[in-house]
Amino acid sequence: MLSPMRRQHTGLLIIRAWIEQDSAEPLRAQLRSTTDVSSGLEPPLNLTSDERVGEAVRSWLAAVRADQPAG
């Protein structure tokens, strides 16, 4: 018997990063992400610290895992 086809989502995370010379916090990181490209990207998230960027990436990965149908 055929099982129903599982729809597989593809997540996407784009990090645009640049340096604003002479700023108190020079890093600018703009994250645009989705856990399913077919639904478009979330509004951008703007961050200035490496740690916050790392946290955001981990959080996105967790959301991608949570969004996938159970295998």
Partner: peptide, 10 residues
């Protein structure tokens, strides 16, 4: 409002 920062001295 977005980052809690001031523009650069430049």
């Amino acid at each position: 409002s977005e980052l809690g920062l001031e523009p650069t001295p430049r």
